[in-house]
Design a binder for these strands. Structure first.
Lengths: 339, 339
DNA sequence: CCTGGCACTCCGGTTCGACGAGTGCCAAGT
DNA sequence: ACTTGGCACTCGTCGAACCGGAGTGCCAGG
């Protein structure tokens, strides 16, 4: 079906279309890329590619443009992730190393990604559920009020205020603190339920009821409904494509404002071992059907901290964007592992 | 110069143009609004208004559109803030009261404002410098590492990790905690330097050096460079005006991504006693010269917690947007005061 | 000071035709 | 069997010409 030359033609079409935004015709294609065949031959190949659904016609007498399926083949078979130049790597590294805390790391990553790729960038904070406890502090705000402060190994700090069913004195809070602290220190949050399982039995009967209630709240807020946070940047880049699809800009912006949508985007595939690409209709997120999403997890293989990536038109520089996403994800992963 | 009828004509022009987006001519105007005069008379008035710079011509044979100066006059003299309907007030109230914590209040406010006005909404977190201390906790993370947790009266929680020049034991940290706690509890952050002034002298000489260093850091991070946070929402609404000014959309989005710009916007006038409007060129923020900004402070008169508002095209429904901004600002202010 | 009349301007939409890029197909060549 | 040049055909784009209409400015008369 698809011999080497046809694939070569597809690659040429994708590359030309991505860089010029204009449907590419047989003639221009045959001479610009040294295919060594005549336009007529190229046309035949194009007809075949179109039969297979890899390219299409805007209208009868215009050039060809790739379909989602065409882009898919392109990223899978015809292109390789483009490594960044040493200069770019250095720039990334020095820019990220200037960060003073986790918030800063995330902010800088977003900015970096959006500038590097000239697309909208998305960065997820290290997921709570996959982090482990560096420190858990219980502060006695008022007789019946506790403040819980959790610091994770990735530097994320979360706090919750708990209203208690009964009042406690400072000693009781101190014993709560040490009970929780000793059991959770160093533990991964997903393991928290197990780590705390023996707690009610081990505690003095006096504070047992309040302890279990605190425990319930702790587990609920930190494990069952961990708050995911996502930061977005570079939305201004979308305006570059406003000419292409004025009617789709709005739904895209709307989708990008929904935390849930973004989470879904990054959550589906945040495997740090490879960069993932969702093309056009492959996105099962309403509103992003006309875009492509390049994502990657960051952090240790097997248990990533979180995900990051970029969102742009299906007509994007896949090789370059994949390279940028991969590079940033790796640096962020290393940075947080070392923190 | 400007008799009542001319002002009436200006009002009619603004109202028509805002609702139709199209330059408004003398004929349509004379009959649609019951002015009781002929189109020719209206034309004379228009010529006068144009001489004064309140309206202008896109080109010779089109209707008139208001200038920034025209909108300014309209806002100042010709319109009054439109109060919300009882139903809207109830909706706002119940929506905001569902919030569980400060983050939630802010998120809901943004969403509310952008839906109410169909514009981009901006909400500033309660400014640290104007808040007072509900609780300050010092946690001993490691021998030479402290975690500072500040909870303000508005429910904002901020934390910083401090690296110490020397190591401390738990007792010393406890004395730090009580020294800071007793002096700062209930104090406004701006008064913190005064409240802490006597601290070095009162402390035991042993920990005096480390105490002053902690104090310096505390004051620096909480008072000198308080971190302001701002949340943005409803950017999708900008796309409605993409037809009007495709070339200005990009700078607007870029400006809105800059925290500094937004702060400037909200910081300039966040007086909770009245709603403020900046029209077009009045904005000394590059990139927002083609927009209007409606803002108001929230919180007690004289010492507002922060500011909020909306950003939209100069051609906006000023009366309605001012009403919405005012209503939301008041509810948020009350809500946080009661918290 | 208002009003109707009138000439003038100029935008916006439409029509028309030429142009050109691009295609599909076919017959001939290798 | 594949490639190639040729050729007719399609169709969108661009520019010119054109027209209608909305709107203006001005003036002379009430």
């Amino acid at each position: 079906m698809l011999d080497d030359r046809k694939l070569e033609v597809l690659r040429a079409i994708v590359e030309d279309f991505v860089s010029t935004t204009e449907p590419v015709g047989s003639k221009a294609l045959a001479q610009r890329h040294g295919l060594g065949v005549s336009p007529a031959t190229v046309r035949n190949d194009m007809a075949a590619l179109e039969d297979e659904g890899f390219i299409t016609h805007p209208h009868t007498s215009a050039g060809r443009i790739p379909t989602d399926k065409g882009y898919r083949l392109f990223v899978d078979k015809l292109s390789s992730v483009k490594p960044l130049s040493p200069a770019e790597r250095r720039a990334i590294q020095s820019f990220l190393e200037g960060a003073v805390d986790l918030d800063d790391v995330v902010r800088r990553s977003v900015r970096l990604l959006s500038q590097l790729t000239r697309q909208v960038a998305v960065v997820q904070y290290p997921s709570l559920s996959r982090s482990s406890v560096r420190h858990l502090e219980i502060v006695h705000l008022a007789p019946n009020r506790l403040l819980l402060v959790l610091i994770t190994d990735t530097g994320r700090v979360e706090q919750r205020v708990l209203e208690l069913p009964a009042t406690l004195n400072d000693d009781e809070v101190a014993s709560l603190r040490s009970a929780f602290g000793s059991r959770l220190h160093g533990a991964r949050l997903v393991d928290a339920p197990a780590a705390l399982a023996d707690l009610p039995d081990a505690a003095p009967t006096a504070i047992r009821p309040v302890l279990t209630s605190v425990m319930t709240v702790v587990l609920e807020t930190l494990v069952d409904q961990p708050e995911e946070r996502i930061v977005l940047g570079g939305t201004a880049h979308l305006t570059r494509h406003v000419m292409d699809f004025p009617q789709t800009l709005r739904p895209v912006l709307e989708a990008l404002e929904e935390q849930v949508v973004l989470l879904k985007l990054l959550g589906e595939v945040n495997d740090p071992s490879a960069v993932h690409v969702k093309i056009g209709e492959e996105n099962n997120v309403e509103g992003l059907r006309s875009t492509s999403v390049v994502t990657m997890g960051y952090g240790p293989d097997g248990s990533p901290y979180g995900g990051l990536g970029v969102v742009g038109p299906t007509r994007m520089d896949y090789a370059g964007n994949m390279g940028s996403v991969r590079a940033v994800a790796r640096y962020v992963g290393e940075l947080l592992a070392g923190a």
